[in-house]
Design a binder for these strands. Structure first.
Lengths: 397, 397
DNA sequence: TGTACCAGTGAATCAAATA
DNA sequence: GTATTTGATTCACTGGTAC
């Protein structure tokens, strides 16, 4: 079994132990030993920059990094409408004094990561609008070559509780090669296409949050890590951009999603994590993972729910015009279509559902099955237009 | 009819003409005249930084910017599988010598844009992974406050012809306020929700490319502009974050999608475009646009915007009697209505909000959404009575 | 053993008017 | 300027308990 290497940074000599030990130091920053064996399938506890500098140059095939996002939360706490408190990410490891400090941190770890990457290795970084623009700029400055930015569309994001912004429903991953000259990177184009109804895999991925049994919980029932990523997300990245047997380095290992998925998919991993609590949870988690048989290492096709279609989208697509009049099946009720996708009857405005309910005097109504538009002299249910939208959306849900 | 102001930058004195003229200069960079009238619904031909510096400070409600993407194409041309050539964006205006040069350009135009923004104005910028990380970083450095990043998911993106990457199926928009202190920005939360099946609008938008009749073509049948954006995209941004009558500035006007949509939706625009060919196409396009009726552009009032109603008024109007007992939805808590519009529970007295918070043990509570009165054997939320008061006051819907 | 209802929760840069 | 008051605001999913 692989080991967990845990130690504080100044105790290298005393605590550095053999492959079978459970506690292994990450060396101190500045000590860059000559090339040495790779700590495969191990978790190094310590600072990721020092630990990466202790690895041989050009030794890993892929890097997956989920760095601190540098969230800048307000002073007060955010309450839900039912007055319960949102459990915000306010851990010390996510605090930076300024954008400049965050940039410097980003430059440091990206530089260290780039050194250990093989010439054709690729790097993945995930982030949100708080940090991803900093990361992307620094990465370009360092000579990385962006291959794609990928949007993780969350199936079940946290809503916006105050109604002040759009629901923040996605995060962004950057996929980059080591340099513009690195043309030989791994990309399993055909496998991805085969798992996606034989059309090219797009840059927007629809994947649920990590919840349920997959989410690691402590003895107190609380989540072990505030930002554990779903295995499905890691699986798609590793299946896309690595081969079985490849070495994947994760410098912000957390509770080890990268390691768990790597083991399951027949990849090797090197994890680096500063917090012992996370590293220990990761070790136990990964030890329990059963690798898939080699034959089973195919891309799992994505399960697709029927995509939600906004009435506004039907207008934007030109199926229905703003200003047009909709009626019910018998023409007894009329409503005007507004450009924002609401309907208007007299002074009342609201969704197709709300206004449908209003004109009938019902508490509720499914507007899609109520309102009609006139086409070629005949009334057409607006749900027909939604069906056309869904057909056009195809695999994009 | 509004004018097209076209001129080269060094001919201000000679070519600057009246509102009805078709050729109007943008002043030279560095000349920043004192506040002057806004060139509403006009297109200024010239450098956007100089033109913005000639506008009065704090004069526009919204900025929409589609800057050059700084695409870094290889030397060779890209061929489709059928050997036809992909018409790449290789125009001179998209060429920058380095990331640093692009950053400097970005800093310059964002600084100029920020000056002309009203305190509660917001900015939209669209880009791809080639430039959006630079733009986002600079924008944060300048003090803009990101509200959302929005993903435009393309219904029909160009495939990846070589099978070397994921289909680049989206672009990113950043929506930012002028500063972290700008809390009063416009966001039509209710209308967006109403147009989206009564659930919050998310940060990922599914919208087709600009094709077909909407795509401007020259006499030769070729597209006039290589990156014309779909009107649906602009419509959603303007409906989200501006009011009818607001002034929208677009410093990279191109063929005028922003202007066309602004006119259709009853907004005013100021367009700045360097290339006369684009500006002339935009002018003709916008002149042909028919605005929507004012009635169709009314905004559904949010609760916050509706007239304030005192609980005492509800008692005075006879909807609720002094001495009556109010309860929560399940009858677990009771309070007595006092003639002065306060509630009483045991020895405690206070507003509907204070007493609601008290009995629940919460720090705060919206009493309108908590207390109920019994009418015909059923519990009725007191907010219903407020609604009747407002209806009687003439506040529609 | 279903079904219905209720409670909990996820990387959050989340108020505005009045005194 | 600060302090207080008023009062606006959630989606998809999981899991436990009641019936």
């Amino acid at each position: 079994m692989a080991s967990l290497r845990t130690a504080v940074a100044d105790t290298v000599a005393r605590k550095s132990v053999s492959r079978t030990g459970r506690l292994v130091s990450a060396p101190r920053m500045g000590l860059v030993p000559a090339a040495q064996r790779l700590p495969l399938d191990e978790i190094l506890v310590g600072d990721c920059i020092a630990a990466m500098n202790a690895l041989p140059a050009a030794s890993v095939d892929c890097v997956f990094a989920d760095p601190p996002y540098n969230l800048q939360l307000g002073d007060g706490s955010l309450l839900r409408p039912d007055q319960s408190r949102v459990d915000a990410v306010d851990d010390a490891w996510d605090q930076f004094s300024s954008f400049a400090a965050y940039d410097e941190f980003t430059r440091a770890w990206l530089t260290a990561a780039r050194r250990v990457m093989k010439p054709n290795a690729t790097l993945w970084v995930i982030g949100s609008y708080h940090n991803i623009f900093r990361v992307g700029s620094v990465l370009q400055d360092l000579g990385f070559w962006i291959l794609n930015d990928i949007v993780w569309r969350k199936a079940n994001p946290m809503p916006n509780f105050r109604g002040k912004r759009f629901t923040n429903a996605h995060e962004t991953l950057i996929w980059a090669s080591r340099s513009a000259e690195s043309k030989g990177y791994t990309f399993h184009y055909e496998a991805l296409k085969g798992g996606n109804d034989d059309v090219q895999m797009r840059s927007d991925w629809f994947i649920p949050l990590c919840t349920g049994d997959e989410r690691l919980k402590g003895a107190d029932g609380q989540k072990v890590h505030p930002t554990q990523k779903p295995e499905a997300l890691l699986a798609r990245t590793l299946l896309s951009a690595t081969n079985a047997g490849d070495v994947v380095l994760d410098p912000f290992f957390g509770t080890g999603t990268t390691g768990a998925v790597a083991k399951r998919l027949g990849r090797r991993f090197i994890g680096i994590e500063r917090e012992t609590v996370y590293a220990e949870a990761a070790r136990a988690r990964i030890d329990a993972v059963e690798p898939l048989s080699k034959a089973a290492l195919l891309v799992a096709p994505t399960k697709r729910a029927e995509p939600r279609v906004a009435f506004l989208s039907v207008i934007e697509a030109g199926h229905i015009r703003a200003g047009e009049i909709l009626t019910d099946a018998r023409g007894r009720h009329e409503a005007v279509v507004r450009p924002d996708g609401t309907l208007m009857v007299g002074p009342a405005m609201g969704s197709i559902h709300k206004i449908g309910a209003l004109v009938q005097g019902f508490p509720s109504c499914n507007g899609w099955d109520f309102w009609h538009a006139k086409r070629d002299g005949k009334l057409v249910l607006i749900d027909v237009f939604r069906g056309r939208m869904r057909a056009a959306m195809g695999s994009a849900a």
